[in-house]
Design a protein around this nucleic acid. Structure first.
Length: 269
DNA sequence: GTTGACACCTGGACGC
DNA sequence: TGCGTCCAGGTGTCAA
């Protein structure tokens, strides 16, 4: 499932391919993917040029010469940029046609992904305005994060997955961050200290930056675009693993907020 | 305001 | 072999 490093990898690939392309047509094959109504989406985008592609948290932001397309890949969304028409349109839900005869295909087996046209003020839109600071792009105010975490009775894993606190972490990297910071995923927010918060932010930045260098993690369903695959799965310490790489005991597996969680009960207190 | 349950969705794994 | 059931998970919505 695409988390911050995977979305950043997709952004970089698409940025290299799509800059200054003019959108000449759009096929919407599955409407629920689009947050606007289909005609509004098409009317506002056809004829526009892509002038930049940005990212905030797990969102991709296609900047047009007027307006934006906000795209969230959720579980299995993928983009494919091709010079020719695809024969097999299985699981393809949106097709962007460009004036130079190329295409951008959006494929999403589980149909969880979402796209939205936003006229202006993208960072104050319904989706982005609630987001916490991006763990790579933003200056993180440790004290403000600590205040949000410390007042909660929820487990720290659950809080780190909450995009309104910090933006970018998903299930895989939260396990890795907690392992690196030596903090149990079951620890309650109110038990987390300022020092813990600092350790968590530092571990997050380090792990996410490293994962971006390795083009993200390829587990089952994620590929960025144009067949680019990440290899950070080779560097995972606990997620989907059986043995703690540090103390060599069996890792614990529990469900937190419905998410499978891997941790070492000896190393993570 | 906070929290938990549920819906969305489909391929793959598993048991019978 | 074929069928039914369960699981995976990011986010929004709704009820308590």
């Amino acid at each position: 499932m695409p988390e911050l490093p995977e979305v950043e990898t997709v952004r970089r690939v698409l940025h290299d391919s799509l800059l200054n392309k003019r959108i000449s047509n759009i096929d919407i094959l599955y409407s629920p993917i689009i947050e606007n109504d289909d005609s509004t989406f098409k009317e506002n985008i056809i004829g526009k040029e892509i002038i930049d592609i940005k990212r905030y948290g797990k969102y991709l932001i296609f900047c047009l010469n007027k307006g934006y397309i906000l795209s969230h890949l959720r579980m299995e969304g993928k983009y494919y940029y091709l010079n020719e028409k695809l024969e097999n349109l299985a699981h393809i839900h949106v097709i962007y046609h460009f004036s130079d005869g190329t295409y951008l295909y959006y494929k999403d087996v589980r149909k969880f992904g979402r796209m939205e046209y936003i006229e202006d003020d993208i960072y104050h839109s319904k989706s982005l305005s609630k987001m916490g600071p991006d763990l790579i792009l933003s200056d993180i105010d440790i004290n403000s994060i600590y205040q949000k975490i410390h007042k909660s009775d929820k487990e720290i894993k659950s809080l780190l997955l909450d995009q309104t606190i910090v933006a970018g972490l998903g299930n895989i990297y939260v396990d890795e961050v907690l392992f690196k910071a030596k903090i149990s995923p079951l620890k309650k927010g109110k038990e987390i200290t300022r020092k813990n918060t600092s350790q968590l932010i530092l571990a997050s930045k380090e792990i996410l930056s490293n994962a971006i260098i390795h083009k993200g993690t390829t587990i089952k369903s994620y590929t960025s675009s144009l067949g680019v695959e990440g290899n950070y799965q080779n560097f995972l310490q606990v997620h989907t693993k059986n043995i703690c790489p540090n103390c060599k005991i069996a890792l614990n597996r529990v469900k937190i907020k419905g998410r499978m969680t891997y941790y070492c009960k000896e190393c993570q207190r």
